[in-house]
Computed example of a mutant assay.
Amino acid sequence: MYIILALSIGGCVTPGHKTTSQKRQSILTMKNEVLSDLYRVKPDVRSQIARAPGYAVFSNVNINIILASLGGGYGVVKNNLTGKQTYMKMGEVGLGFGAGVKDFRVVFVFHNANTMKRFVDHGWAFGAQADAAAKASDKGAALGGEITVDNITIYQLTESGLALQATVKGTKYWKDTSLN
């Protein structure tokens, strides 16, 4: 039941524009803003992304209700080798202790082309997460971080929210057929 709900949330969390072109542009604008924020905090990531075969940027909303964690979002994978952009959605479900709502952005830097292709074509990611976030606009602090797994470096930036969680999650990323 939680998996169906998470995928439903992922399917509903999309840019609020009406046309396909406007949705794509909204995602690209989000991508550029997130990268600017990340470069401001970690300037060395700019060269890491430039040297990588590709990268992805996602906007996510996560809800933690006592023992369940649900989330959804959207984003884009940029293939630096071909210039192709693949628009994607995501949904997640988790079990563990937590409470709160968090709006955050994730940047994936792919260190080889096969890993990027596997992500675009199959998109599953599983993992454990423990974090605390208390942020509204430019006020507050968010502990996210950086991790490298399976030839992918992952950066998380919290936009806003109040959450305390320790969960084991399954996340599904898939191509957005309406935008590709």
Score class of each variant (00 low, 15 high):
Thr82Asp: 04
Thr82Pro: 01
Thr82Ile: 11
Gln85Tyr: 11
Gln85Met: 14
Gln85Pro: 01
Tyr87Cys: 02
Tyr87Ile: 06
Tyr87Gln: 00
Lys89Ile: 03
Lys89His: 11
Met90Gly: 12
Gly91His: 04
Gly91Pro: 01
Gly91Asp: 02
Glu92Gln: 14
Glu92Thr: 14
Val93Tyr: 14
Val93Gly: 11
Val93Thr: 12
Val93Cys: 05
Val93Arg: 00
Gly94Ser: 03
Gly94Leu: 01
Gly94Pro: 02
Phe97Leu: 15
Phe97His: 00
Gly98Tyr: 02
Ala99Asn: 06
Ala99Leu: 14
Gly100Pro: 00
Gly100Thr: 06
Gly100Phe: 07
Val101Tyr: 13
Lys102Trp: 07
Asp103Arg: 08
Phe104Thr: 07
Phe104Val: 04
Arg105Asn: 15
Arg105Ile: 01
Val106Ile: 12
Val106Ser: 05
Val107Asp: 06
Val107Pro: 01
Phe108Arg: 11
Val109His: 02
Val109Leu: 02
Val109Asn: 08
Val109Ser: 04
Phe110Thr: 05
His111Ile: 05
Ala113Asn: 11
Asn114Glu: 14
Asn114Lys: 09
Thr115Asn: 06
Met116Asn: 07
Met116His: 04
Arg118Asn: 15
Arg118Pro: 00
Arg118Gln: 15
Arg118Lys: 14
Phe119Asn: 04
Phe119Glu: 08
Val120Ile: 15
Val120Arg: 02
Val120Pro: 07
His122Gly: 15
His122Met: 07
Gly123Ala: 05
Gly123Phe: 08
Trp124Leu: 13
Ala125Tyr: 11
Phe126Asp: 05
Gly127Tyr: 06
Gly127Trp: 01
Gln129Arg: 12
Gln129Ala: 14
Gln129Leu: 11
Asp131Lys: 10
Ala133His: 04
Ala134Lys: 00
Ala134Leu: 13
Ala134Glu: 03
Ala134Cys: 08
Ala134His: 09
Ala136Met: 13
Ser137Lys: 08
Ser137Arg: 09
Ser137Thr: 11
Ser137Phe: 14
Asp138Gln: 10
Lys139Pro: 04
Lys139Tyr: 15
Gly140Lys: 04
Gly140Phe: 09
Ala141Tyr: 09
Ala142Lys: 00
Ala142Leu: 01
Ala142Ile: 04
Ala142Glu: 05
Leu143Met: 12
Leu143Ala: 13
Leu143Pro: 05
Gly144Ser: 03
Gly144Trp: 02
Gly145Met: 05
Ile147Pro: 03
Ile147Gln: 12
Asn151Thr: 07
Asn151Trp: 00
Asn151Ala: 09
Ile152Asp: 05
Ile152Ser: 00
Ile152Gly: 02
Tyr155Gln: 01
Tyr155Gly: 05
Leu157Gly: 01
Leu157Met: 10
Leu157His: 08
Thr158Lys: 00
